[in-house]
Design a protein around this nucleic acid. Structure first.
Length: 642
RNA sequence: GCUGGCGUAGCUCAAUGGUAGAGCAGCUGAUUUGUAAUCAGCAGGUUGCGGGUUCGAUUCCCAUCGCCAGCUCCA
C-alpha cells in the first residue's frame, strides 16, 4: 500500500497509508488523547475529520475548546434540525442555516406556520436522528449536477443559489437521505451533537430583504456537553433579570405608556435624576474639552430640511406639522441650527475648529416593530456635537472625538466594538467627497491603532461614519457613539471661512455623539450595572433607616445634614423592623444604608451598611460625607485631557 | 412595516363556555423592632378597546391598539 508522510503541527511525522482519514491520522499522531478533535487543519486549511489524506502534509487538530469548533458543531446541529423538520413536514423547503453567535438557525419555506408547540416534536426527531449515529458525508458535485440533484428534490431555493454561484464544483453534505448544499466543514457523525436546544421560532425574509417572501426561522443552540448547555441557559435567565425594561419598573426609573404613545419614554423622579447626573457631568466635560454649548429650535421650516437633503432622504422618519400655512419639520437631528449659528457671522481660519455641543431632543418616526424599551424610541435626547474645521484639522478632530468617546466608555467600564460604515446607495454628495471622508475616518482609526470592522454601504446618507457599539445584557449590540464625516452639508449651506490668503474656503463638518441617545445609553447602562449603579451615578446614594420611632428626630437631623452636603439621600423612618427596611433598600440597590439607632444617636454618627452587605461600623457623619465625595470624584478623570 | 406569540388588580401571576382569585404593594389597627419580609382586618378588576357567535364569552371567532421575540431599518 502507498504511504505518505504526515506530520502533526509542532510534533513528529509518521508514514501513514495513503487515503487515511484526517481523523484517523490525528488519532495515530497525537500522543495525549486529551480534548477530542472536531475538525482538522491540513496545511493550514480547515477540513472535516473524514477528509482522506492523499499526499504529504502537516495536520493540526481543531479541538472542542476552540471557538471555531463550536461553530462547526452548531452548523451540523442546524443540518440535523433541518433534516428533522423535513422528515416531520415534507413540504418544508430548505434555504440557509448557519451557525451564529451563541447558536444556530435554519430558515424554511413552509406554507403553514411553525409554532412553539412544534419545537418539542422537532427536538424529539432530532434526538432520534442523533441516536441513529449516521455518518455525515461530504460529496463534491459538478455545479450542473448539483442543480439537477436539488431540482429533483424540489429544493428551489438551493437551485436559485446554485444558479447564481460561479464555482464549477460545489460541495454537498448530508446524512441518511437528507442533503444540503454546504461548504462545511461538519462533524463526522450526527451522534456528535450531544447537547442542543431549540430556542424559538420567528419570521425572516429570504436573503434578508423585506421585498422577498418571509420564511420561517427556527433558532437553536448546541454545545459539546450538557453542562455547557445548562450553563448557557442559566446565563440567559440571568440576563433576563438585567433587562432594563424590568429594572426600570422595579427601580421606578421610567415607563412607557400606551396612553401617551409607543416609543415615548416617561421618566419618573429617579430616572430623571439619573439623566440629570449624566447630562450635567457631560456638559462640564464638553466645556473643558473646548466645546461650546448651543441650543436650537424643535421645529424648523420644511424648506430648510429640503435644503439639507433630509426631506429627500429622511422624510419617512420625520414628523411634520403646519403652522399658519407654513410647513415645519420636527427635528430628527440637530445639525441645521448649528449650521445657522456658524453662518451668523464671518468666520476666520483662526476661529476653527468650532465645536458646537447640544443636548438635543430629536424625534424620529421609527417603524412600530422596532421599538424596544429605552434602546429604540421615537423621541430621544442626543449628546450631539458638530465640529466645523479646516480640512487640515480634520484628522486631529476625529482623533480627539475618538479619545473623548473612549474615555467616556472606559469611565463606565464598557467593552465596545468599532465599525466603519461606508457609502450607502441612498446618499447625497460626490464620490470624491465620500472617498475623502472615508479615508479621513479610516486614517484616524489606523493612526490610533484601534481594531475595527468595515460595514460596506452602512453609512448615513450625508457621509461615512465610525460607530461604537455597546452590548446589552442579551449580547445585542447597540450603536451609541457615532462619528460622521460630512463634506456635503457645508456645501449645501454654503459654510465658509476666510483663510490666511484672505479668500473664502469650505470647512468640513463632523457630526458626532458620545453616548448617543441618552435613553439608549441609559438602557444599556442599567443592564450593564444590573441596576446597581456606582455611587457617583446612583439616583439615591444613601438611605437613612431608623431602628425605632424614637430615632426619628435624629434621622431627620441626619437627613438634612447629608442633603446640605450634596448627598442624594432618602429616609425611611417608618415604624417597621430594620430587616424589612434593609430588604427594601437592598432591592432598590441603594449603595449605602445608614442604620440609625441608640448607638448612632448617642455618638451623633452613622453606621453605613454597604449594598454588598458589608457593615462599615459607626463613623462620624463628616467621614461618611467624605467617603461619598471620594466616590463621586471618579468621574473627574474624564475632565483631564491627555 | 413583516412573521409568530401574548394582553386578567399598582406589581408578579392563577382560573373557567355559567358574570374572576392569590401573593406583594395600598389603607386601618396592633406591634417599637439592630442588618434581606411582624401580625390582623379592609379595600382593590366593565379580564387592553370594539364587534360577532352563543341562552350565556374573560374563555371561541373577527377587527383594532399595545407589548414580546425575530426579520427589515436605525441613535
Amino acid at each position: 500500500m502507498d504511504e505518505i508522510n504526515v506530520s502533526i503541527e509542532g510534533g513528529e511525522s509518521q508514514r501513514l497509508p495513503k487515503g487515511i482519514s484526517a481523523g484517523e491520522a490525528l488519532e495515530r499522531l497525537r500522543k495525549k488523547k486529551g480534548i477530542p478533535a472536531v475538525a482538522a487543519k491540513i496545511n493550514g486549511e480547515l477540513f472535516d475529520l473524514s477528509k482522506p489524506l492523499e499526499q504529504d502534509c502537516t495536520i493540526e487538530p481543531l479541538n472542542q475548546n476552540n471557538e471555531k469548533a463550536l461553530e462547526i458543531l452548531r452548523h451540523t446541529a442546524s443540518h440535523v434540525m433541518a433534516q428533522a423538520v423535513q422528515s416531520l413536514y415534507p413540504e418544508a423547503k430548505i434555504t440557509i442555516g448557519p451557525a451564529i453567535e451563541n447558536g444556530f438557525y435554519y430558515d424554511f419555506d413552509y406554507p403553514e406556520t411553525f409554532s412553539v408547540e412544534d419545537i418539542p416534536k422537532i427536538e424529539a426527531k432530532m434526538q432520534e436522528i442523533i441516536q441513529q449515529a449516521s455518518p455525515v458525508l461530504r460529496r463534491e458535485l459538478d455545479r450542473q449536477e448539483a442543480i439537477q440533484v436539488f431540482t429533483e428534490r424540489d429544493e428551489t431555493y438551493k437551485v436559485e443559489m446554485l444558479e447564481e454561484m460561479e464555482e464549477p464544483v460545489v460541495s454537498v453534505y448530508g446524512q441518511d437521505d437528507w442533503l444540503d448544499l454546504c461548504r462545511g466543514p461538519h462533524l463526522v457523525n450526527t451522534s456528535e451533537v450531544k447537547a442542543f436546544k431549540l430556542t424559538g421560532v420567528a419570521g425572516a425574509y429570504w436573503r434578508g430583504d423585506e421585498r422577498n417572501p418571509m420564511l420561517q426561522r427556527i433558532y437553536g443552540t448546541a454545545f459539546f456537553s450538557k453542562k455547557d448547555l445548562k450553563r448557557h441557559l442559566q446565563l440567559l435567565e440571568e440576563a433576563k433579570k438585567r433587562d432594563h425594561r424590568k429594572l426600570g419598573k422595579q427601580l421606578d426609573l421610567f415607563h412607557v405608556s400606551d396612553e401617551a404613545g409607543p416609543g415615548l419614554v416617561i421618566y419618573h423622579p429617579k430616572g430623571a435624576l439619573l439623566r440629570h447626573i449624566i447630562e450635567t457631568f457631560e456638559k462640564e466635560a464638553h466645556l473643558r474639552r473646548g466645546y461650546q454649548m448651543v441650543s436650537g429650535p424643535q421645529l424648523l421650516k420644511t424648506e430648510m430640511w429640503k435644503q439639507s437633503g433630509h426631506f429627500e432622504n429622511y422624510r419617512e422618519n420625520m414628523y411634520f406639522t403646519e403652522v399658519e400655512g407654513q410647513s415645519y419639520g420636527i427635528k430628527p437631528m440637530n445639525c441645521l441650527a448649528h449650521m445657522l449659528i456658524y453662518k451668523s457671522a464671518i468666520r476666520s481660519y483662526r476661529d476653527l475648529p468650532i465645536r458646537y455641543f447640544e443636548m438635543g431632543l430629536v424625534h424620529r418616526h421609527e417603524k412600530s416593530g422596532v421599538l424596544h424599551g429605552l434602546t429604540r424610541v421615537r423621541q430621544f435626547t442626543q449628546d450631539d456635537a458638530h465640529l466645523i474645521c479646516t480640512p487640515e484639522q480634520l484628522n486631529d478632530e476625529i482623533k480627539g472625538v475618538i479619545d473623548f468617546a473612549l474615555d467616556m466608555l472606559e469611565l463606565f467600564g464598557f467593552e465596545y466594538e468599532i465599525e466603519l460604515s461606508t457609502q450607502p446607495e441612498k446618499r447625497i454628495g460626490t464620490d470624491e467627497d465620500w472617498e475623502r471622508a472615508t479615508v479621513a475616518l479610516e486614517k484616524a482609526l489606523i493612526d490610533k491603532q484601534i481594531p475595527y470592522t468595515i460595514c460596506a454601504g452602512e453609512g448615513a446618507f450625508y457621509g461615512p461614519k465610525i460607530d461604537i457599539l455597546l452590548k446589552d445584557a442579551l449580547n445585542r449590540r447597540w450603536q451609541c457613539s457615532t462619528i460622521q464625516c460630512d463634506f456635503t452639508l457645508p456645501e449645501r449651506f454654503d459654510l465658509t471661512y476666510i483663510g490666511p490668503d484672505g479668500g473664502k474656503h469650505r470647512p468640513v463638518m463632523l457630526h458626532r455623539t458620545l453616548l448617543g441617545s441618552m435613553e439608549r445609553f441609559l438602557g444599556v447602562l442599567i443592564e450593564h450595572y444590573a441596576g446597581a449603579f456606582p455611587t457617583w451615578l446612583a439616583p439615591v446614594q444613601a438611605i437613612i433607616l431608623t431602628v425605632t420611632d424614637r430615632h426619628q428626630s435624629y434621622g431627620e437631623e441626619l437627613y438634612k445634614k447629608l442633603l446640605n452636603n450634596g448627598i442624594r439621600v432618602e429616609k425611611d423612618l417608618r415604624n417597621e423592623k430594620l430587616g424589612y427596611k434593609i430588604r427594601e433598600a437592598q432591592l432598590q440597590k441603594i449603595p449605602y444604608m445608614l442604620v440609625v439607632g441608640d448607638r448612632e444617636v448617642e455618638a451623633a454618627g452613622v453606621s453605613p451598611r454597604r449594598r454588598d452587605g458589608k457593615d462599615l461600623k459607626l463613623m462620624e457623619v463628616a467621614d461618611f460625607v467624605e467617603l461619598v465625595r471620594e466616590e463621586n470624584a471618579v468621574a473627574d478623570s474624564i475632565f483631564a485631557i491627555a
